[in-house]
Computed example of a mutant assay.
Amino acid sequence: MTRLLVATVLVFCALYAPQPLLPLLADLYGVSETRAALLITATLLPLSIAPILYGLWLERLSARRVLAGAVALLGVSQIVFALADSFTVLLVARIAQGILIPAALTALMTFIAGRVAAERLAATMAAYVAATVLGGFLGRALAGLISAYWSWEAAFWLLGGGLLALTPLLLRLDGDQPPNAARINWRTCREVFARPGVAATCLIGFSVFFVFAALLTYLPFRAVQLRPETGEDTIALLYAGYLMGIVVALASGRITRWSGSARATVRLGLGVFLLATLGFLVPSLPALFAVMLVFCGGMFLVHGTAPGIVNALAPDRRGVVNGLYIAAYYAGGTLGAWLPGILYAHIGWAAMVSAVALMLLVATAASRGLPGPHSSQSKAES
């Protein structure tokens, strides 16, 4: 399990490492804020489509081989990113990463879920989410700090080397799930999506990551706006609030037992997330540090609970249901990293924050479709 969690951390490092460097890369390559943000959007866009295909393939293919191959190629793409001599090359490298990352993530979720007993599923998936949080933090923090005290390229050389070094260890994993010989097609996707609770969970994932991606993508520009002398190291430390997500994700099972159901836990997380989102309206750089703690806590209370829900709702089609959830989640992130930026560029930060907060009302409404406290799924998750 350790190797799987390390792989999760490194994959998420790869996904988010460019985020604190967006102001720097915009200056170096002479592009606008919204164009620089494409380095995030370009990677999230394939993540909103590819997981469904990978989920279908993982019903037939070896999750171990898919994971190892994706991690190796992801390592190569980091080195290409570091060697880029134009913004176009940066963008192409990020698009390639967007194709590889969902293969790795869907394989990881499928592999992890297939190795544990049903009664430990929710706790195991919470550990997986905690690893994603750690990876998201380390990717942003180390890229910012290494850029400030060394060079921005060095961060991607180190990350590429780490991913390549991990590949042979992943190939030696045991316990891979045997391929499913049954024919899997788009009808299977529709059937799984139609199961009670699956669509609601996917919509919640879409909504919360829409808000999360919007604020974290444009947060570096907001920091520079509030204090023009802000450097990459300060921006990197802004993401320290991300670490709250690890604590919350690991505690999500206990919170669910205390609240009585996964649905109540998700609603609690959504309420905290909404309050923190509105907290970003305070025009103060120190306030951003404090708000980030609450913001990440609310976000990962929701996201730490959701994977356990979807896996319990479709235990016979985990590859497909994980693909559906990841696709919905990153579709929200793709749109969140792009559409709110238009508001930010033309109207301002306050308008953008107020607009994205409305998405959390959509997620709250969707939470009514989750399993209740007396359902068999809710009992399995707790």
Rank of each mutant, 00 (worst) to 15 (best):
I112Y: 04
V362A: 15
L4D: 15
P46W: 11
G114Y: 04
P228N: 02
D27L: 12
L361N: 05
A141N: 06
S147R: 01
A262I: 02
G260P: 05
G98Y: 13
V247H: 00
I40Y: 05
M244G: 01
A290H: 10
A113K: 07
M299V: 06
I79H: 08
A314F: 11
A223F: 11
G271E: 03
R187N: 08
A117E: 10
L45W: 13
R318N: 04
P20S: 04
V247T: 13
A380S: 12
L358C: 07
Y54H: 09
M299W: 07
G55I: 02
Y330Q: 13
L100G: 00
G319V: 00
A17F: 06
T41Q: 02
L90N: 12
A251I: 11
R60N: 01
Y149G: 08
R368H: 12
L215D: 08
P307Y: 06
Y329D: 00
I347Y: 09
L45Y: 05
V266W: 07
A380F: 09
V31I: 14
Y242L: 01
V291N: 07
G241H: 11
I79P: 13
R254Y: 05
T230K: 00
C189A: 14
R60M: 02
R257A: 04
T167A: 13
P373C: 15
E232C: 01
L145Y: 09
A181Y: 02
A126F: 02
P340E: 07
F193V: 01
F206K: 09
G369F: 13
G260Q: 06
L47K: 06
L250K: 02
L22H: 02
I146P: 03
R368F: 14
I112T: 08
L215I: 01
I246G: 11
Q377K: 08
I246T: 06
F81T: 01
R227F: 12
G372T: 02
R195M: 09
N311W: 04
V71I: 13
A363P: 08
T201S: 11
L38T: 15
G139S: 05
L91K: 02
M1W: 08
V192F: 08
G336W: 14
A331S: 14
C13D: 04
G75L: 08
Y149P: 04
L278P: 09
V80Y: 02
Y239M: 04
L216H: 09
L73S: 14
F111N: 09
I326V: 10
I342V: 14
T334A: 15
D174W: 10
T110H: 00
F193R: 12
